[in-house]
Amino acid sequence: MCVKLNLFIKIIVLKQDSWRAERDNLTSMNSETEARSRTISLERDELKKKLNTLAQPGWRLFTSRAYYISPTKKSWQESRAYCQSVDADLMIINSREEQVFANSFKLHMWIGLTDSETEGTWKWVDGSPLTTSYWGSQEPNGKTEENCGEIKSFTTERSWNDGTCSLQLNWICEMNFAQ
């Protein structure tokens, strides 16, 4: 009888250990699922915010991005602040297609290019270096007086100019959906 009782107790203890391990595993899985759910909810909310922004007048879709063409004028920094307030930034032009697209609005406008950090070293607002450019003839030429990039002459593909950042110009924001 004692042997059977000891065996029964060992079986019960083993079952309890097994149940504890299963409970711990389920608790861990539940925590991971809750964390994933929170992440998905945050991503959903960000997408809703972007969609609400894009529903406003002035936004245009091109490739996998959306662009806002301002109807008003601001300084380069004020323009950038506006773009950032809607989870975008001033436009970064990475291809000939984007350059042609930007020129198509026929506006003298700010883009996301500056050398204000280091004179003569032009960078995009995301910190990436300028590799492909569409500077107009004899540009950039403003030295320390002109540190912000603009589209000045939209009648030619090579339309960029370095302008005084405090000038009041239209601007173009770029919103990337992959972020």
Rank of each mutant, 00 (worst) to 15 (best):
M1L: 08
C2W: 10
V3P: 05
K4M: 04
K10T: 14
I12M: 03
K15Q: 14
Q16T: 08
Q16I: 12
Q16K: 10
R20F: 09
E22V: 08
E22Y: 12
D24L: 01
S31W: 15
S31P: 05
E32W: 10
E34D: 11
A35T: 15
S37R: 15
R44V: 13
E46R: 15
L51D: 06
P57I: 01
G58N: 00
F62G: 03
S64P: 02
S64C: 03
Y67V: 02
T72V: 15
T72N: 15
S75H: 01
W76G: 01
E78D: 11
S79D: 03
R80Q: 07
Q84L: 06
A88P: 02
L90E: 00
F101H: 00
A102H: 01
F105I: 05
F105H: 06
F105S: 04
K106N: 12
L107K: 12
M109F: 05
W110N: 02
L113E: 02
K123Q: 09
S137Y: 13
Q138E: 14
Q138A: 15
E139H: 15
G142M: 10
T144G: 11
G149E: 06
I151K: 06
K152E: 12
K152M: 10
S153V: 09
T155V: 13
D162N: 13
N170M: 02
